[in-house]
Amino acid sequence: MEELIFDLLEHRGISGDEGGIARYCENRLKIFSDNVKINFNNNVVAVLGNENADYTFLLDAHIDRIGFIVTEIDDSGFIKVDKVGGVDLRTILDAPVTVHAKEDLNGIVCCMPPHLSDGNEDKAVSIDNVWIDVGLPAEKVKGAVSLGDSVTIFSKPKELINNRISSAGLDNMAGVCSLLKVAEKLSRKKINSRVIILLSCQEETFATGAKTVPFSYKIDECICVDVSFASQPDINDQYSRIKLGEGPILCVSPNLNKDIFNKLKTTADKLNQDCQFEICNGRTGTNADHIVVNKSGIKTAVISIPEKNMHTQAEIIDMNDIDKTAELISEYILCGGVK
């Protein structure tokens, strides 16, 4: 399996601590563009195509992931945390974590062994009771860890069968990976438009990147790339028809632009490529919710990569879907979008 997605997953940045992943992406993008910048919030912006063109595409994917933030260190060196983004507390007890302190410290989320069960096995832990043990003397912990340090939940990125991979943080390294592939594809072509790739910060909290970066540019249309739900047990709504490996999910929503949606669909047909559909009744839960209302309004679409077990260490995606997403977006841009 190709290394890019595994390299991306190595750099774990929760919302507000995207420096490492942003610098990695900056270096990747520099292979394909001479105009790459990181701003003070660790938003990465790369400009491709014809910089002086009068038509501009914005392609957005968020680079942050969910995690924890340190709120307290007790006398014994245990570290108390709160959530950053929608961490699923059903998966947290005994989870391997990394405290990104002066140096990275690996730890475990404290839990009771079954021998001493409190009888609350049916119930997920409350965030008020989440503590981390890094297995070091208290003075070492206090010397290394500061309040506000970020904590990521660790699961070793791994291959499953059928070209699938599982890891924490595939939301949204799957999207970022697609856009890096788009950059590579477009860099080999002559494009008449300007293409801005935005790898945006803080989507999992307040969408700060999506709200602020587009303000600096005159943008004609935008595609946001994120992950969305694929079928798994106990899902009985529309997502029960979304399958891994059956192509990107195009979103239909009153807030989104129908011309881009239709053109994406036609482009997929032209590529003889499968795609799937999700229907939202307004907000999409992605950066698009903020980009559509930027300045005087931006025509926006959302393309999602099907994912299982979202917001857990066990997120699963199919690499084929990343490739198909990249192919669809590249072809769409080469066809001129909805200019």
Binding site: D88, R90, T312, A314
Partner: peptide
């Protein structure tokens, strides 16, 4: 409480993860 989301190895060779319906 320590099962959902965990990575496991089946038969000593096949990777798997304990699935969770997204919150």
């Amino acid at each position: 409480r320590v099962i959902l989301g965990r990575s496991v190895l089946i038969g000593g060779k096949i990777n798997g993860v304990a699935g969770v319906k997204p919150t």
